[in-house]
Amino acid sequence: MNKIINPQREKTKSRIAWTVAITLAVIWVVVTVGPFIFMVVNSFRDKKMMGRQGVLHFPDPWYFQNYPDVISNGFFGYFFRSLFIVSISLILMLIISSFAAYPLARMKFKLRGFLYAGIVAMMSVPMHVTLIPVYQMTNQMGLINNLFSLLGPYVAFALPMSVFILTGFMMTIPSEMEEAARIDGCNKYNMFFRIILPLSKAGLSTLAIYNAVGMWNEFAFANTFLNDIRVKTLPLALGAFKGEHSQDTPLILTVLTLSALPTVVMFIIFQDKLVKGMMAGAVKG
């Protein structure tokens, strides 16, 4: 008798739970959005007024000149170069890492354990260590001041983490699905494209987001390889507003706001894929 659930009480309980959850959710929105607003609001401030007004008050008056200033300073050049190199790097990285994760997750072969451990080890390579050797290589290849010099480092540095995550994702794919496909006459190569890749969509979108943000904001390699103003990427655009003794903070925030926009848009598009990703495939199977 005790075990019979009282639907009325359950409903009240659940309503309370939801109210609490939504309140917390809204508080968390303040925590995450507040700073974003800070960034945007301060991009509408006149640098000269910053000293007097501080940064935590609304600008008075609102100053709109920063945006035309940034845009006339070649912003779109920086922007499209970044877009170009990040897109290519990202696509290449996703292809190569899913290629690598497949055998690591779904095949038995001799060096599997060793390669997997090696990839985990590669995750622990600190980036600054590679700066000098990679610079020397890039120099020898004659790629200094060439946008494509970033391709190798961007793909390579995203690989270990991506392979690691994707391997984890692919391991959770039920082996029955593979069995079924094998009976249908799929070989190892078809299997990857027909079964494994579609089922890894959720993992791939996570990785796309994770790495796109990293590459989009990458500074150290770009700063080292690209000297010519005609090939510089977006994070280097900030340099034009930093002097030896001071920087133009509102202009920097303007650049940062403008550079964050595409990643926001991209997330809005991709986040939907995150949910659909695997479910669609799994239900069919």
Binding site: L131, Q136, N223, K242, G243
Partner: peptide
């Protein structure tokens, strides 16, 4: 070059 990373840039430049 950007001032705040200039010394590092110079060192990397001289490494090749």
């Amino acid at each position: 070059k950007q001032n705040d990373t200039y010394k590092q840039d110079l060192q990397v430049g001289f490494s090749a």
